[in-house]
Each structure stands twice: as C-alpha cells, then as structure tokens.
Amino acid sequence: MSDVVEGIVQAIQLIVSLDQEVLEITARSLMISLSATLVGSLIAIPLGGFIHFKEFGGKRGLITIIQTLYALPTVLAGLLVFLLLSRSGPFGFLGLMFTPTGMIIGQTVLIIPLMLGMTLIALSGVSRTKQDTVISLGATSLQTVITIVKEARFAILGGVILGFGRAISEVGAAMIIGGNIRGYTRVLTTAIALETSMGNLSLSIALGIILLAIAMVVTGFLFLVQER
C-alpha cells in the first residue's frame, strides 16, 4: 500500500515539475490519437451519411457488421494494420511500421466502426418528418445530407469523442505497430505497460493520472457542448 502512496506522491511531483519525458509522451499520445480521431471522423461521418440516406441491398447486414466491430479487439486492429504495413505486406514499401503515422493508421482502423455506428445512430435520431421537411423545402440530395448531419451534430460529436476515448486509451495497436520506442513511438498507455512491468510504479501512476485527466477534460467538454 505504501508503494502506491509513494507512487502517487512521486507522480504529483513529476507532473508539477513538468518532467520532460512525461510531457513528451503526453504530447505524442494526444497528437497520435487526435490525428486518428480527425482522420476517422473525415471517413466515418460522410460514410455514415451515405449509408443512412442510400437504400441498397445488404444495408441491414452491413450495419450489423459495423456494430460487431465496435468490440474489435485493439490487438486485432494492430495485427491487421501490422500485416498491411510490415515489410512483406502490401504497403510495406511505405516504411510506416514503428512510426507515429503507422500508429495513427492503426487507431483510425480501430475507431472507425465505432464512429460510423454512432453517426448512424445519431442520424436515425433525426425524425423522418424533419428529413421530409428539409426535402420539401427544396433541398438537393447533398443539401439534405448536410442539413440532417448538422441537425444531428451533437450526437455525432458524442460518437467522435467516444472514438477519441477509445484511441487514446488503447494499448494493443500502439504496441504492435509503434513498438513503444522511447522518444519516438512511446505513448501514455505503452509507457504505463512498460514502466509497470519494470516496477517503476511512480511513473506509471503519474502517466495514469494524466490519462484520466485527459479523459475528464474530454467528457467535460462533451458535457458542456451538449448542455448548450
């Protein structure tokens, strides 16, 4: 127990003294996960709009697959991207293995189903009458999609933030694709895993507190936006 207390005290010291390594790992985590969230949103929201508004065969099945992939294990997403990016894989020539860009790709793959699913739920939350109202007011198909997405924006934003939460908290893909290279691909979660296994509890706890703080800021932001 005293280990834990000592760890917390040291953690606070590390945070207050703005320890270089802690700052650097935090910044990298944010950069990678925010990038993955941005890229994921740019793919998932328009794609969600397309799936919602377009009638096609197998739509129901596709939605079921998307929902199943909410629970895509992070290591599996990591493995998938690993197979694609490794030297012998189809995109091996890009040299993205063990790079932050590779990690962004991994996290993007991981969170797209979740953000896509949340976009679909958000859009189906907009009433049919509202959609008909927009069409009856003379909107083109594109204007209809844009207007309805705007109507659902807070719910869609919820999905985006959920995606970010999953990205920043995952360890499997980051470890497999990034390799936890100090000063290059080490992020909060991989650092916690490593430091804990090395018995370096104070650093682990410090990083854990930061991770939780980020989660708190993000949910707080979501709460504020939805309150508006």
Partner: peptide, 18 residues
C-alpha cells in the same frame, strides 16, 4: 426538385430545425 421548389409543405408536426 425544380417542381417541388414551386410548392411549400407544412407537416402536422412542425419539426423546427436547430
């Protein structure tokens, strides 16, 4: 759309947009 733009429809449920 061109024909529809010459008409206006008000639904039973008013459906205000944000």
């Amino acid at each position: 759309i061109q024909v529809r733009r010459k008409m206006g429809m008000v639904f039973q449920k008013p459906s205000p947009l944000r």
